[in-house]
Design a protein around this nucleic acid. Sequence first.
DNA 1: TATCCACTGGAAATGAAGGCCA
DNA 2: TGGCCTTCATTTCCAGTGGATA
Length: 356
Amino acid sequence: MIVDDRVLREDFVPSEVVHRHDEVNLLSETLEPLLYDRRPEPAFLFGPTGVGKTCIARYTLAQLREQEPDVRVAYVNCWQEYTRFRVLYGVLSEIGRAIDVHRSTPKDELFGKLADADDNPIVVVLDEVDQLEETAALYDLHRLPHVSVVLIANREEELFAGFDDRVRSRLRAGTRVRLDRYGTDELAAILSNRADEALEPDAVTADQLRRIADAASGDARVGIGILRSAAHRAERRGQGSIDAETVRTAIPDARTAIRRKTIQGLIEDQRVLYDVIAAEGEIEPGDLYAEYERRVDDPKTERTLRNYLTKMVHYDLIEAVGKRRGRTYRVVDEDATIDTDSEGGSDSGVDADELP
DNA sequence: TATCCACTGGAAATGAAGGCCA
DNA sequence: TGGCCTTCATTTCCAGTGGATA
């Protein structure tokens, strides 16, 4: 039943972007100076999870490269590459200039290598740039006249709040492309296009696609995940098409699969913390640290545990209720996130290998 | 109202790991 | 081979916040 599984992957770039023509045009216009050997202004893509920010960036740059093949594109996800070193290394790696670079290579040397790679323009796409811990990387990139940046984040205010004055003043100018959540009909149309390419004809009905789109609450990533899960489930059962029952069971499957993959990527100490929180339902920090220390032979300090907990909140695995004294931690309700995924939620669908 | 206490998170220090080089 | 340099995870220290209590 599945003709091309790649089409149902999150990172697949479709041949045509549906319901985002204005946004694609705005980004294309921003990057147009590259066609005339000029440097474009920084471009920003803002919007909540699953609205197609990354897809639009990849699609637009693929189109640009068809017109100007000399332009090189470096895609760096700041969930994984959150230090200055890792960003610079990521860019060098993407353009094939990371030879002879190792973990003890000085950052200034990496910057020098990037500065020397000025034979052709480079567009650096920093996805989830709000996760960047060392914004000096942005300053580095801005200093290089042959490097242009496309920055992807959830919210403009939070992104700029994390910049130091030097970076903020340089990036204040630039084109903002804002994306809102898809409507149910829009998302159903996107899923229909994907199904046409990925599945055999009549493998899924329009009503079922609408049901999936409705359950995804405007989040294309979740919608595609549900469609993928339903297709695999139907194929395993030897069905020639996806029925209503398969869709119903696939809806919780999609988010659970993302969560399971994320939990698998936790290091041992993080997983102990997660297990304690899951077992208790809701727990205060003091009790959490005490139970953690009881369970492990060589416990980390409380400060390190606080860093772990902050990361796990970012991953959307747990939530911190309240601030400072009186705070409690609890596991994020999976069912709630399927249907009520709120505006501005973090792009926490990280792969297991993105975790520390 | 003052004080205590639990908690958070920033900043600096520390140590492990790994590569370079004389 | 050992000293040096770098990055990065972890630890240490501490200021700030806000609820609880006398």
